[in-house]
Nucleic acid binder design. Structure first.
Lengths: 353, 353
DNA sequence: AAATTAAATGTGTGCGCACACAGTAATGAA
DNA sequence: TTCATTACTGTGTGCGCACACATTTAATTT
């Protein structure tokens, strides 16, 4: 019927040696005579031998540990969605004896991040998945991982210097350009656009600014003469309300681009409160609150970063690496998904693909 | 340390019977005494037994055949993308001795479709993946599949009466609503919108009309008083050009919604030729030509049906069904992906997730 | 009571790989 | 010559499951 897959046994037969010898050649275990080596290699060159991963896995019966470093999902729904992805992958790999253990850190407390990261390193997991929110605090952590020779994957935030096994996430610069385009569609007259970075932690804004850069560059490249103003605001700031009030009083304001998922809902509630229905709002991610405002029409577009799938894929890549020695792509850049009132349901129902 | 997975052997020990008996209970093979049945079931209820799929697969060593029925990819790039998905899945499952064989049929010739479908049925594959383009011609085909007890999955086009293992595709009605929303964004004044069904085969339009229904309903629900005209046109029709010319001369024309992927490029070339840059164009799918027009700004939005992933997932579902006895979801509805000039690259680079 | 049959239960084998270990041949040392 | 050492080669086992087959027990007939 069909060319059956070649097994070690077949190679042994063709080369006129035992399967043990073939095994030694395949794994460079030595103790093979030059003649046997030549005979086996001759066959291997003719035949495209692909080891049966299923059989290999069954025999090994390894017990791997994957550690995940994640911001506390209690505080931020974005991270609880990421956590949901971890949970999902966890149960999928559990039967292969791959333990996925999650370690949370406080988004507000950088020192805790390092402490936990070092603890994780010391516990010697077989691989690590990490969302490196804090740039400066992350660098020495990666240093440790490399010293301990623990393979690790970054997700959500890319840090060039990390030199990880792979990065999973989006191109933030391009993401900003998408935001700008969605902002610009159908807006004819020149006007004012606001970029809002609403976050408790200003330091995080380093990577948020990348989105703003893309946003601005879009209009520049299109040679559209518009006015862009930006705000880096902490919602707990006493001046927060007055500053936003001031923004809304700007008569030429056409739209608001919010760079954070939580901030998107904050901005939306502000617009709703002031009855500003004609100002376009573009933000991030399918948080419950955001979906509510998308439904009511306050939010026009959401760019979906898909934290759930990012996290799930991170675990999958590591598990495949450990179990099947499959190499993950160096960069797994996610599509910049545009969510609207009309397609949101299709995203919610389809789950992870 | 490790919460070791429960094996059949463990259940047997706990229930005080042999593994053979446990096996008979698990597979309802009968020949089990009531007492033994009770003992085993008691353990099974306490313990969440998950069979080791790897071991199961290793032992079986089956040789499955999956037949795929697909329109000729030579003629239509949409289907060549679907074919690419098949190829991808094919190579993934090859090592598990699952043969994926593709049978092409002519989009223009319905009789050939039935002939090939019956041939495929007669060759007794273990499962079938089919894109049932022709409604009436498909019904007797499904009948045969059921008679032969060959599990089959529909993709791209849903046919309610088929009663398949599952359907993979999009909600066309909702897809039309997405198109309408994208059309409506930022369009303030009332105007005229055109819905174009450009296809060689008018009979296909049955399922295309579903998109139009969604398109129209969007505006009705939003209580937007606009003018919608529709055309069902064959690009080879001698009157084709004049009819489109007439459309473009309508001064109140704000936008065009094209329900087919090939037609999208046709409409785009028409708009470009007439220098109509201010008419919004919303169409379907990432065909090369469409991407060109998206880049140049003629096309504003594409709704991505993702034929590649649909096809690949179809094979995956069937393969998982055959190999691992995993049940595929009855409806695998894909997200209605919105493609723009700015996010298209991220979709192209990310491949299938 | 012995023989027959059916029902129930237990044992054995192979899937392909990895790895432990036993076996063989060749060489040099006692 | 005999023994020990080295260099290589081949065989055996387990991973967990599915299924074939052998064995035991109970029920029924002769």
């Amino acid at each position: 019927m069909k060319a059956q897959n070649v097994r070690i046994k077949d190679i042994a037969r063709l080369a006129g040696v035992s399967i043990g010898t073939v095994d030694r050649v395949l794994h460079n275990r030595g103790n093979v005579s030059p003649e046997a080596l030549i005979k086996v290699n001759a066959i291997l060159e003719q035949i495209d031998y692909k080891p049966n991963l299923i059989a290999r896995t069954l025999g090994s019966n390894k017990n791997f540990r994957i550690a995940v470093l994640l911001p506390d999902p209690q505080v931020d729904q974005y991270w609880s969605q990421a956590h949901a992805g971890i949970i999902q992958s966890q149960s999928e790999w559990a039967q292969y004896n791959i333990q996925v253990e999650v370690h949370f850190f406080d988004l507000m407390d950088k020192s805790v991040f390092q402490k936990i990261a070092f603890q994780v390193d010391q516990s010697k997991p077989d691989a690590i998945l990490i969302a490196p929110i804090f740039y400066h605090e992350s660098l020495p952590v990666f240093e440790r991982f490399h010293q301990s020779e623990i393979p690790f994957i970054l997700f959500n935030t890319n840090i060039k210097e990390a030199n990880p096994m792979s990065f999973i996430g989006q191109d933030l610069y391009q993401s900003g350009k998408v935001g700008a385009q969605l902002m610009n569609i159908g807006q004819h007259d020149p006007g004012t656009y606001a970029v809002l970075h609403l976050d408790e932690d200003v330091h995080e804004s380093v990577h948020l600014l990348e989105k703003e850069r893309g946003f601005r560059e879009y209009f520049e490249l299109k040679k559209l003469k518009i006015n862009i103003i930006d705000f880096i605001l902490n919602p707990n700031d006493p001046l927060f309300n007055s500053k936003l009030d001031q923004l809304l009083n700007e008569p030429s304001l056409r739209g608001i681009f919010v760079s954070t998922s939580k901030g998107t809902a904050v901005a939306a509630s502000f617009l709703e409160k002031h009855g500003k229905n004609n100002i376009r709002l573009v933000g991030y991610d399918m948080l419950e609150e955001n979906l509510k405002y998308l439904e009511s029409g306050i939010i026009d577009f959401l760019i979906n970063q898909n934290p759930k799938r990012q996290a799930a894929l991170g675990v999958d890549h590591l598990a495949n690496h450990l179990m099947f020695k499959k190499t993950a792509p160096a960069n797994d850049l996610f599509p910049l998904e545009v969510i609207t009132q009309q397609n949101v349901a299709s995203y919610l129902s389809s789950g992870i693909h």
